[in-house]
Design a protein around this nucleic acid. Structure first.
Length: 883
RNA sequence: GCCCUCGUAAUCCAAUCGGCAGAGAUAGCAGACUUAAAAUCUGUAGAGUGUGGGUUCGAAUCCCACCGGGGGCACCA
């Protein structure tokens, strides 16, 4: 053992030892409970950032904790290595996406290893390699067989100059990222997965994971799915056999309908275009054209519409109402048609106001009869209301339904419509089917073949994987790059053998991340995505950790995928993740100049910053003295506020960096990066190291058996030790990582206060100190594993390693953690006036007696009347007196 | 506009069931060690919990309103 703590030396030593001994390699073991610790896998962008460090430090701490608790822990990592940046690099710099990706992985794996993360590297997966994406394709074919994959036309962002499709990011602001021209929309045939078939399961099964997932994540998923109960109602068109079906959640307001409003794309509109006036047709065209524009969704679009020549008949009232076209009705939701009830719907109200449409109140607030003075207000409301009354209430002006409550009417009118054959109760969802086609090269090819004779033919399983060619023309313009690779597209039909063409689109990369953690359980299987019996041992994931930016997309898709796998018979459960921790972002100060309208960022190293006494920025200037604006934003290279993890490791060591990241803030909070604090982490590790250095020789002679007598000082230390064990164990179970670090620091400080020199220590001192130090080191392991290994090795005199030595997380003993005597505060009328010392668990009556005997208390009471005495054992006594 | 969250010391953060506002860290100040500095050690100060109400014997904690930060949704009928 060196006298001083050299992080780099220790970290290299133990990383090597772990790799040699396979310390973190796991296999199925029925003698131990299993624990599957999972963190979201990184995209190999080229560099690890602090967000990764945070995510993986949390996961690693839990993995270590569970190992020390005797669990068989699966802790794997891999690469989400398909995706656009690889292709962008190919377009911009002419590099091959595969080479670029492999090189990035190589580099980033080194970064992860230098952090000393305890992964089973044998299980590493790579989404971009054929042995992995083979099964993306396998699943696609299964979905096709199950009727869950289908093709239809849909709109994509399209750059008319580059002749290429754009992702939403590439089309942000409605401008092409490459050429700056106006982005339009284009119809394309695309593949979809029928996630909507599982909408109700995705909602209902939330009950199974409620306790382990943050409510805010579930809420976002619920909103995303957007289940809405209501009714379909058919409005017959006058002088025609046709009907228009609307969806409404408020059938109870149907007597107030003043119009039917249709989406511009509605089939009825298409069918009657010839009957409409030129003006109507022009407006319809305009609405359609506006929808093709990519708009920033900041400002709300103004409502626009025009009456058609059609008239609909309200099936409840028989009233004839006009049919309009409106830009605020979406073809994609419900039936693409709504009944407009301006008195009771905000949007319809706005629309009616603009076009001066009649407004009929059919719901009145439920009021008590004795509110006569509200009468005046009511009157004016009826004549010209300022807004729609959207609350539930009592029906009026609704024929035989008048007088019913909204709740009753909504239910009864829906069934009535069903009985009479002009409607039915209905449920709609906001959730849409998942479009998986991408006009990209760097993704898994969709395994279908188009044959002139046979149509769409799935690639036979034995021909999987459909491999990506080595390269493709990456011009960034034109259709999918694969469409220009002759040897890829030209094939023969598996059914009839004639010449045929392959699908040239690739799959959304969210497909890869839907099932990667199932693959970890059985990463080398060549026949199946994974063996069901192997997955059955490890799955479901016990703890998943990642950013909450994935609260909807990834986490809904993967829940969907699991249910599909269940229906395929691959797994036997509904939900893949028992517990989810969403960690907060790592953010930092940014400096920029936005005079050009766009933010131009300056790396903080080139900015001169003035701060006030509180550390708040007063001014920031660039090297030329020009003043800059500043903000606190998500860390990224492009914003110049990134912190390089390698540099952190080089300067402070991986242990200190990890310890600090966990200590700085609760895992779910945002973490404002502030380099200053990390020194404290280094200092703490050094203090612990110095203590062990000073004592390790003597501690080898510490008694193995617990002495029967302890000095007061030793008892105090043992109490602290066991209290700390208790606290830290609880903290881990409740996913707190900042407070246990503080607890370790306290225990370390307590050791520092132990005023005995090593060569003067007696048996019981040695026992107590050994117990405290060993506990401290083992509890430190999840946060700073290299330092802990080194310290542990010197305490036990063996380099075998903590795990191979079968060391366990210390267990606390309640009787040792308890204080013998505690100070009970005494309040008089809620104000602190005195304290008494009492034995732990002193009963109520005794505390009361002791309090009343207290001199100060007597003084305060001074003969005044005691109204009440509140005694909370072990907490406080409060005496209420009358003045 | 609607919904969700968070506001505690100069800063990051603690505070169990509503029970003494402070565990830990950073920065500060004083001292020891040193030729000096760094490092280290010892000691020390600092908020009444965003604001205003309410419930309670007692509120950082529960309720209401407002202010401020962060996030989500935004024509979903």
């Amino acid at each position: 053992m060196d006298e001083k703590y050299f992080a780099e030396k220790i970290e290299e030593k133990w990383q090597k030892k772990w790799a040699e001994s396979g310390a973190f390699e796991t296999e199925i073991d029925d003698t131990k409970p299993k624990f599957y610790q999972l963190e979201m896998l990184p995209y190999p962008s080229g560099n690890l950032h602090m967000g990764h460090v945070r995510n993986y430090s949390i996961g690693d701490a839990l993995a270590w904790y569970k190992r020390l608790k005797g669990f068989n822990v699966l802790h794997p990592i891999g690469w989400d290595s398909f995706g656009q940046p690889a292709e962008d690099a190919a377009i911009k710099r002419g590099v091959n996406p595969r080479d670029w990706t492999e090189a990035n992985i190589e580099y980033m794996r080194g970064q992860l290893q230098r952090l000393g993360l305890s992964y089973d590297w044998r299980r590493e997966i790579f989404a971009h390699r054929p042995d992995y994406y083979k099964f993306d394709q396998w699943f696609f074919l299964k979905m096709l067989e199950m009727g869950l994959a289908y093709k239809r036309a849909t709109q994509v962002n399209w750059c008319p100059v580059d002749q290429t499709t754009l992702s939403n990011e590439q089309a942000s602001g409605g401008i092409c990222w490459r050429c700056g021209s106006q982005v339009t929309k284009k119809d394309l045939e695309q593949w979809f997965f029928k996630i909507t078939n599982y909408a109700d399961q995705l909602l209902d099964d939330m009950a199974e994971i409620e306790t382990g997932w943050a409510e805010k994540v579930l809420k976002r998923q619920r909103d995303w799915i957007g289940r809405s109960e209501g009714a379909f109602i058919d409005f017959a068109l006058k002088n025609s056999g046709e009907k228009v079906r609307v969806f409404t959640t408020r059938v109870d307001t149907i007597f107030g309908a003043n119009a039917i409003v249709l989406a511009a794309e509605h089939p009825i509109i298409e069918a009657h275009l010839a009957d409409f006036s030129n003006e109507t047709c022009a407006t319809i065209e305009k609405i359609k054209a506006d929808k093709l524009k990519v708009v920033d969704r900041e400002d709300e679009q103004e409502k626009e519409g025009i009456p058609t020549s059609l008239t609909a008949i309200n099936p409840f009232s028989g009233e004839e109402i006009p049919v309009w076209v409106g830009n605020y009705v979406m073809m994609e939701y419900g039936t693409g048609a709504v009944m407009s009830v301006p008195a009771h719907d905000e949007r319809d109200f706005e629309f009616a106001k603009k076009y001066d449409l009649p407004l009929k109140t059919v719901i009145e607030p439920q009021r008590h009869r004795d509110t006569e003075d509200l009468e005046d207000e009511d009157e004016s409301e009826i004549h010209s209301p300022q807004s729609a009354m959207t609350e539930y209430g009592v029906l009026i002006n609704s024929g035989e339904w008048s007088g019913k409550s909204s709740e009753d009417a909504t239910r009864e009118m829906a069934s009535f419509s069903q009985e009479k054959g002009f409607g039915e109760p209905a449920v709609t969802y906001r959730l849409r089917d998942w479009g998986v086609s991408r006009q990209r090269f760097w993704g898994a090819p969709i395994p279908v073949i188009y044959c002139d004779e046979c149509g769409v033919v799935p690639v036979p399983y034995e021909q999987l994987p459909v491999e990506l060619p080595e390269s493709a023309p990456f011009t960034g313009v034109g259709e999918s790059p694969l469409a220009r690779v002759e040897e890829f597209i030209n094939t023969t039909c598996p059914q009839c053998g004639v010449k045929a063409r392959r699908e040239t689109d690739t799959m959304d990369t969210f497909v890869d991340s839907c099932w990667y953690y199932f693959r970890y359980t059985d990463p080398k299987d060549a026949e199946m995505p994974f063996a069901p019996e192997v997955a059955a041992y490890w799955m479901p994931v016990d703890q998943y950790i990642g950013g909450d930016d994935h609260a909807v997309m990834h986490l809904i898709y993967t829940r969907f995928w699991t249910k599909v796998m269940r229906d395929l018979g691959l797994v036997k459960f509904d939900e893949p993740v028992n517990r989810l921790l969403t960690q907060g972002m790592v953010i930092g100060e940014t400096f920029f100049n936005d005079s050009s309208g766009k933010r131009v960022y300056f790396p903080s190293s080139t900015v001169k910053v003035e701060r006030d006494a509180n550390g708040k920025i007063v001014s920031a200037t660039d090297t030329e003295g020009k003043s800059l604006k500043y903000a606190v934003e998500r860390m990224s290279k492009s914003k110049g506020n990134g912190v390089d993890p390698d540099e952190m490791v080089r300067i402070y060591g991986a242990d200190a960096a990890r310890l600090f990241v966990l200590f700085a803030a609760p895992a779910e909070n945002e973490l404002v990066w502030n380099e200053a604090g990390i020194e404290g982490a280094v200092r703490f590790l050094q203090r612990v190291y110095r203590f062990v250095w000073r004592w390790h020789a003597q501690l080898k002679n510490a008694p193995k058996d617990e002495p029967s007598e302890f000095s007061a000082q030793a008892r105090k230390l043992r109490r602290k030790t066991h209290q700390t064990i208790k606290r830290i164990t609880e903290n881990f179970e409740s996913l707190q990582f900042n407070t246990p670090v503080a607890a370790l620091m306290e225990l370390s400080n307590e050791l520092g206060d132990f005023k005995v020199e090593p060569d003067e220590a007696n048996e019981c001192d040695l026992y107590a100190i050994n117990e405290a130090v060993r506990g401290l080191v083992l509890m430190l392991t999840p946060f700073a594993p290299h330092a802990a290994e080194e310290l542990f090795a010197n305490l036990v005199g063996s380099d075998k390693g903590i795990l191979k030595s079968e060391a366990r997380f210390p267990e606390f003993r309640e009787e040792l953690a308890k204080a013998d005597e505690i100070e009970i505060p005494i309040q008089i009328n809620g104000k602190l006036r005195s304290r008494v010392l009492a034995a732990l668990d002193t009963p109520r009556e005794d505390l009361e007696t002791m309090t009343l005997a207290n001199e100060k208390v007597k003084e305060f009471i001074n003969g005044r009347q005691i109204v009440k005495i509140i005694v909370v054992p072990n907490r406080l006594v409060n005496i209420v007196i009358k003045n």
